[in-house]
Amino acid sequence: MNIRKKHRIVQWPYFLMLAPGLVYLIINNYIPMFGVIIAFKDIDFSKGILKSDWVGFRNFKFLFKTSDAFIITRNTLLYNVTFIILGTIVGVTIAILLNELLSTRMRKTYQTVLLLPQLISMVIVAYIVYAFLNTESGFINNTLLNAAGKEPVYWYSEKKYWPFILTFVNLWKGMGYSCIVYLASIMGIDQSMYESAKIDGAGRMRQIWSITLPLLKPTIITMILMSVGRIFYSDFGLFYQVTMNSGALYEYTSTIDTYVYRALLQMNDLSMSSAAALYQSAVGFVLIVAVNAIVRKVDSENALF
């Protein structure tokens, strides 16, 4: 048939459109994926990466013999668990409160302000934290502790405070984002349910408890699971910039990401850094696949794959 033939869909333009992105993915993502073999090698750049000697799991043995391996794993996991729990509670609470506001204009205004920290880089956040904490001129030492008659604290060398500081900064920066996600989900709830609940005499708390929260549950679970899937990754900027990379704090502030960075670029230790990097990628991969399997069971619509 003439017409059919004339309008047969050619495939090559599609391949041409894909090509630049494909090239980029190969360079930026796929070559590094195969590059993880360096973790099993003793890299000697004079021989080249491919011709360097294989050493099996030696790099991993060295890594896990150090106390660092335990510390960075512990810190990464504990910080993430704290961030997930508190972040969810704060995000859901703020979203519910925003939804209770009658004035749409004020709701938008608050939302705009809450999102502000999300927009700025961790470098700027580091400056802000520095304005409060630095020893010589920080607000807390000079004004608050001074007024209370207390001795100044050397914040950047006293590690015990940092779990709290970093958790606060993380919440401060992230609450706008998570409350918007939850608010969007709450706004999608059928309003007639609230109307009939009101007719039945249900108060505000009752409505939140019996309608909003149960209907928000799938979103909450999905968001938590997504974060759990990334529990082996940390926000490099938070732990590197905000702490000003202060060595005295490492025991409580180094995570897998900061460890890999320091081992690679500050200590030039390819064997340790590549082993730690693959440790992160491999466990991260298992976690995300496992988590997705769970999401698919709980709420198949939101499963990644």
Binding site: G21, L22, L25, I27, N28, N29, Y30, I31, P32, M33, F34, G35, V36, I38, A39, I49, D257, V260, Y261, L264, L265, L270, S273, S274, A277, L278, Q280, S281, G284, F285, I288, V289, L304, F305
Partner: peptide, 19 residues
Amino acid sequence: FIAFFTMLFNGGLVSSYLT
């Protein structure tokens, strides 16, 4: 899938840096 898989697995900083 080729695009999507990059969300699941990545080579990490060291091999990306070397690439």
